[in-house]
Design a protein around this nucleic acid. Sequence first.
DNA 1: CTTGACTCTCACATCGGTGTGAGGGTTGAG
DNA 2: CTCAACCCTCACACCGATGTGAGAGTCAAG
Lengths: 126, 126
Amino acid sequence: MRIGELAKRTNTPHRLLRYYEEQGLILAERGPNGYRRYNENDVDRVIQIRGLLDAGLPTRIIKQILPCLNKPRNIFFKDATPEMLATLRFERDRMTERIRCLTKNRDAIGEYLSTVEKCRAPEPTS
Amino acid sequence: MRIGELAKRTNTPHRLLRYYEEQGLILAERGPNGYRRYNENDVDRVIQIRGLLDAGLPTRIIKQILPCLNKPRNIFFKDATPEMLATLRFERDRMTERIRCLTKNRDAIGEYLSTVEKCRAPEPTS
DNA sequence: CTTGACTCTCACATCGGTGTGAGGGTTGAG
DNA sequence: CTCAACCCTCACACCGATGTGAGAGTCAAG
């Protein structure tokens, strides 16, 4: 598929797809006319990228962790340098901390909401 | 305490504490000399703010949800407008989505790491 | 052939969070 | 008194993610 379709299916502006490519997060083949060609996998990949960006990870880190993820477990074992592994552990722990923080605050919001609802319920609106 | 101590205890540059104040996330009393005075609660509050920022929430949203959180459940029930409640639900769901994404990717990193470790273990380094 | 929808590259703009420094007041220890 | 270590405000700079638009090529439908 071409960039327009990918943009629609991932709900992502063209501009950002090109940006992600520039940052090395996705790579697109080119048709003879110079147009980018994407495949089905790219849809999930872009969605994943956007999710991680939204969760506060910078492209630099996403680029490092993406190759180690959701792959048919074949590659990426030779070039796993100690520094790389350390980075991965560090980011994994950082993500755990983010999850902890988000969960705590989300639950607090939920609790607040249900409290409010309880206060409102006995008093019918009309 | 003054800004320096808060900065040290929250591991946050002065600049940002002033920025958070400017954005309405914290509010500091002022001593007669104009110096900001903080209390113990502000330590946790700043840490919480930083956690949320790191998890991708903008100050604008943090400002909205903070008053509904970790409070002695007393206030903030009259001014809970329907729009406000809708915002809260929306952000809560967004946070849930972030948690889902982070968890999935963190676990994938963990899996990768343990796979690598398993490959390395049987082969002593020396 | 023409037109409109799509694509390309390039470049400048914006926005939020953060860094940095200038210029100046306050305060406590020596 | 003086000096160091704080604090203040203000303002400009940076960086990463994103918006926007100009200028030009491609291509299918009419």
